[in-house]
Amino acid sequence: MNIPTITSIVTSFNEASDIKTITFTYPGDVSPGQFFMVWIPGVDEIPMSVSFATKTMKGITFRNVGDATLALYQLKKGDKIGIRGPYGNGFSLKGKHLLFVGGGTGIAMLALAIEQARKKKLKATVIIGAKTKNQLFFEGRMRQCGATVLVSTDDGSTGYKGYASELAKHVLKEKHIDAIYTCGPEQMMKTLLLYCKTIPFQASLERYMKCALGLCGQCCIGKGLRVCLDGPVFDGTVLKKIKDFGVYHRDASGRKILF
């Protein structure tokens, strides 16, 4: 069965301006990079990366951008939501020194992968990019797990002034990086793919999702690759052949929307 399991909010925590983490009881294993379908009864059901995981508890970290995320934002301890999943493939970590580049809320979906890399004693350099200082989050959590953290903001209010991909370009010049993992605005990830040349690259994509079961086709990219099932993480070698990557996504009706 793939139906939502009802669970209660255990904690709700403000990470930054308009960004919250909520945790709830939900047993089971997840691979870093996987996502849940989160049902807010009476509102909507939306995909959310798993940003926090223990054997019995899970969490998601999200920006309040619309009806469903606003409803999540307003939930209090004890309120009920439905969870199904985890879905998707997740990252495969390879190499000794890994570079993680998270733009916007992208760092939420990278967090578990970074912590896993550190548990395996791999060197992790993490770039967290945000529009401005008060939208930054997970900087402390990433430092705590032993990653080297660099920050970029578009307006220069803290850290490097400019896009996360530009900061990554500098890092790639200075350090020997074995593999790159990224999640964020698709054009940023596409630029990054250009910069990394032959270095192994994995990016996590977002597409409008309905079934998350690999059935309805709503989330397809390229030659019928289902972001919900064949992804959301794709290798650079695959992405180079996909015309949609960094160019367009589809809305709920299937119309193409340019990034």
Partner: peptide, 30 residues
């Protein structure tokens, strides 16, 4: 163009799949 219904639109039950997509489609011209 029609967006169809909000999610949940598809769930899997013990012996089959239940859906109410609501005929989402971009319209014939697209």
């Amino acid at each position: 163009p029609r967006e169809g219904y909000l999610n949940p639109t598809v769930i899997e039950l013990e012996y089959g799949i239940l859906n109410a997509m609501g005929l989402p489609n971009p319209g014939i011209d697209i």
